[in-house]
Simulated scan of single mutants.
Amino acid sequence: MAELQDIGAFVAVARHGGFREAARQTDSSASQLSAAVRRLEAQLGVRLLNRTTRSVAATDAGQRLLEQLSPALDAVESALDVVNGFRERPAGRLRLNVPLSAARLVLPRVLPPFMAAYPEIVLEITVDDSFVDLLRSGCDAGIRYEERMEQDMVAIPIGPRMQRFALAASPAYLQQHGWPHKPQDLLQHTCLRGRFGSGAMPPWEFEHKGRKVVIEPQGPLIVSLGAGADLMVDAALAGSGLVYLFEDWLRPYMARGELEPVLERWWPSFTGPFLYYPGRRYLPAPLRAFVDFIPGLRW
């Protein structure tokens, strides 16, 4: 029977897509993980991982083994974590996968009081705006908006329950180009746009008194949504065009007069984000502490 440690090394490398990232996640070394995977492959007599200088990916045999092993290893981890309940305070590592908007607008209100209440829990935050398979990524939980969550997950509200998208421009831009009076006017303006990692470029949506308007604006700048959002805001501050983003993101600039709200009565509302995680009978103690902590916060 293969050593459980070698099996765990294979699962970590396969889930994280490489030895370096798996080593970082498991507090091990890439060379130790590589040796463990080689031992497992030698014992099984089959290659489990295809390795190149740039990437590591599971073979068909490795993928099938990973699918069979993951539920069993998760059950072992949950069983061992039950012991954590006998501690005075939960300890361990909590891995969260969140979009940039949550990292910027939600977690600053959550993490400081949580870390003060649970100093023995280590939080590891991965900022990622793409669709995420939590189990394959090795994360305990994620934060996403309703339409971008994985299916068959437990979800609880986190952060403000209603948010809005806002449209804004610098005073200099509006003085030079004039104010839009209705969403259709944006087709005659310079707009700063974002693109998802999938390549999709979301339209700008507006709503007023039950009437919805969808605009496909044009402009000289397209950035990746998430990582490039600050660049889009900087361009708007410099007078390069109109920016359409979370109201909470733009509100500080509007409060200082650096940006002016545009078409505010047309700003659309949407449901706030959710913390989501796999439905397990036993949650890891750090995640259980986090789940229980969230309802006590006020937004």
Rank of each mutant, 00 (worst) to 15 (best):
A238L: 14
Y244N: 11
S224F: 00
E124I: 02
E207M: 12
R280I: 00
R161D: 13
P268Y: 02
D133H: 04
F274D: 09
R251K: 11
L134Y: 05
E247F: 07
Y277L: 14
A35C: 00
Q5R: 15
P295T: 13
P268I: 04
R298Y: 05
L250I: 07
A35L: 05
W179E: 14
F131N: 13
V154M: 10
A75E: 15
V122H: 08
A238V: 03
Y277N: 09
D27S: 10
Q32D: 09
P261W: 13
L33N: 06
I125N: 08
I222T: 15
Q163C: 10
P113Q: 00
R195G: 07
T190R: 14
N50S: 13
V233F: 00
F196V: 02
H16D: 06
W179K: 11
R280E: 13
A227T: 07
T26P: 07
S29D: 00
E124H: 07
F86T: 09
S269T: 13
H181G: 08
R104H: 12
R281W: 11
R144D: 03
L4T: 15
H181S: 10
S31A: 03
L49S: 13
G197Y: 09
R20D: 09
S269M: 10
L263I: 03
S34G: 05
G178C: 04
D152G: 11
P99C: 11
D140G: 13
M149H: 06
V214Q: 15
E146N: 04
L48I: 01
L94C: 08
T190K: 11
E258G: 02
P108T: 09
P160Q: 13
P278G: 07
A168G: 05
S34C: 04
C191H: 02
S269G: 09
S198H: 08
D129E: 11
A75K: 14
